[in-house]
Design a protein around this nucleic acid. Sequence first.
RNA 1: GCGAGAGUGGUGGAAUGGUAGACACGCUAGAUUUAGGAUCUAGUGCCUUCGGGCGUGCGGGUUCAAGUCCCGCCUCUCGCACCA
Length: 809
Amino acid sequence: MSEAAEKQTYNPVALEHHWQERWAESGLYKTDEDPAKPKHYALTMLPYPSGDLHVGHWYAMTPSDTRARFMRMQGYRVFFPIGFDAFGLPAENAAINRGIHPHKWTMSNIENMRGQLASMGAMFDFDSEIVTCDPEYYRWNQWFFLKFLEKGLAYRKEAPVDWCPKDNTTLAREQVIGPERRCERCGTPVIKKNLAQWLFKITDYADELLDFSKIDWPERVKTLQTNWTGRSEGAEISFDIEGYGPIEVFTTRPDTLFGATFFVMAPEHPAVEKITTPDRAEEVRAYVEKAGRMSEIDRTDATRQKTGIFTGAFAINPANEEEIPVYAADYVLMGYGTGAIMAVPGQDERDWEFAEKYGLPIIRTVQPPEDFEGKAYVGEGRAINSGFLDGLGVEEAKARMVLWLEEQGAGRGAVTYRLRDWLISRQRYWGTPIPIIYCDSCGTVPVPEEDLPVLLPEDAEFTPTGESPLKLHEGFRNTMCPRCEGPATRETDTMDTFVDSSWYQYRYLSPHYDEGPFDPERGERWLPVDQYTGGIEHATMHLLYTRFWTKVMRDLGLVDFDEPMVRLFNQGIILGEDAEKMSKSRGNVVNPQDFVDRYGSDTLRCFLMFIGPWNQGGPWDGRGIEGVARFLRRAHSLVAGGGSSGTADPTELDRRTARLVKKVTEDLRLFRFNTALAALMEHTNYLLAIKGEVGESEWVEVLRTFVLVLAPFAPHHAEEMWGLMGQPYSVHEEAWPEWDESLIVTEEITLVVQVNGKLRDRIEAPADVSEEVAKELALASEKVRPHVEGREIRKSVYVPGRLVNFVVG
RNA sequence: GCGAGAGUGGUGGAAUGGUAGACACGCUAGAUUUAGGAUCUAGUGCCUUCGGGCGUGCGGGUUCAAGUCCCGCCUCUCGCACCA
């Protein structure tokens, strides 16, 4: 084929269309169910149907696809599904702002994105697609809710919740961002509001969630989840308030009890009003009110001057029967521990600051080092001023004090978590209705299982009023009590969308199964997920919830394992060309479709894999993609023509091929797509250089191997080249090539010669050269001699196959 | 403040303690082309008296040998942040 003819023939966009159609027709990506093969469930986080697939989706999905294809060629039966996380606020906002029904908006976005997903050319099994706003799906959210309720893992509670005044909804703790406590979605500072809400008891599983021994996840995620769960070991100690009764505190330092010189309660603590002495009542009430009005931003600012007020009450320190004053102060938070603390200024920085400000006594109960003064001492040391604890180290003193408290009935060892129960109620329309009915005579009644799904009515008025939209829908709200058949009303809140994504990996297995959330027989064959990939931003929300959910499923007898996803890989974030986060307002959004139309999908996917390590992300480089386009064009040109002179060094060719296979195999195992592609590029350049110097049959062999290892990266190009070579359809059903390690070793090696660690020469030598000969050769070098002549060689180092280093004086 | 991660050419990035800068982008020169683009070839860390010298944020250390290991800083990014 002539160069000109080749140019005309190479049309990446057209060839991709051709193969995508062929793949679809032949059902190439229908999931392989061959039980003889080992299973591999590869999962990539399901997208929200925002309307268009953006380059971030490509960055998340195409490397996952490459990995899944690699596993397939390695002999695994691979399950690689995709779906849509279809409930949630954006649909409702679109409805509010543009008058389109959320269902219509969502479904038309999904339709659009399905086409875009197809143009990606990934090996998704579209037959197992799920759409979470489908009653067929959310029915099982409701079913799970009922199971959680039966197990005592779902409960309703009136509590202050974070409320976004703009979105008119409650937010989970995870959805409140940063020290300014802004709404995750719209950035508005959140306020507190009291509502009766449903919660899931994730805290019951806190300890188990801290155990990562059964999963191979990034350290980063494990650390984030550990910190999020925030386990603190200590004691609960009961302090008697004179004229009131006992109030419990939580402390991590029971050993310092003798140093508790005052007592502090959160201003919101329900007992504050009751213990306050009449003469202090007015002042205290004013303070509590002021603290309540203060925004969460100011309240939790650690650098702020602490404030507080004396209640007039006194507590009895159980260790020494001392009377200590009780304060209400805003540095103590109602939401953690018991909402009250024993203040030990000698050993706690915050208490020290407060004690100094209000002139309260400070007693050290741990011996600080010499010259240590002027602040709290939080380190190790011997107990002092502590009666029966004196002389003990911190750990021993803690244990002894807990023992003593338990004997006295004044306290006990206790564990507290930062983790809160998962608040799932949302005062929104576009979500799963919570299957609960409230009856005046029967109380809170779960919807019977056989009545599921509780359908989300189509015709609701979802414009926000501050009330749940379903509350205004008479037809939905008014119902009959399933127990007494009297008039009753439905719960009108919907579920957090994290409920949907907590178990979707199970539904993929049998999206239309109606005997349960998933077909256990399919589960037996495919669970758990072997490889999960997705962004780090989900570390403390989705990834914690799905672990919790799986543990509950295990306890319900639905699965027989403890963790939903065995391995996890977090890809990075792809940024705009200006290295900033892509956003419409910045105008730096890259539309993948533009590049697909111009270069084709393979170029875009290879480019995204080439720009750097996958877990790193990085800025988009519009020029860089040209290099990848060139690479694929050059690779494609390898199959055109092909010489037969047979003058190329066959050993070199075999060696390079073996090295390529090894490199790509090892890199793909470890998600190192960028260096694998570099090796593929290098090999392409080499093959182009020797093309025409290789015998016909050998060339085909060499090319075959090359195309096979290219296939996961550039599936369309590989298929095209495979076809042009006359190989049988499809390259993606071929086995991954092996390599012969013995071919990689060379007979001649380059030996590096150093003098005092500095590179002086490189010499060619036989691979099995002896130390003695290597040194002789090295000393004979013209470039080495001037550096050693006339000097004493004190030492010489020989690293076989690598280098000789002379140490001279 | 606490925790984690990262600092390598003009750029993205490579480097089991053993040849720093693979592979690309960009740039320079040449070929081809009416021109541009595309393509191909060669070159491309910095300095240089052309012998060589210097180079992986800074300062020490370990080692025959350090981008890599250790200690102390600096900078940046990301979490968490009065959690008792």
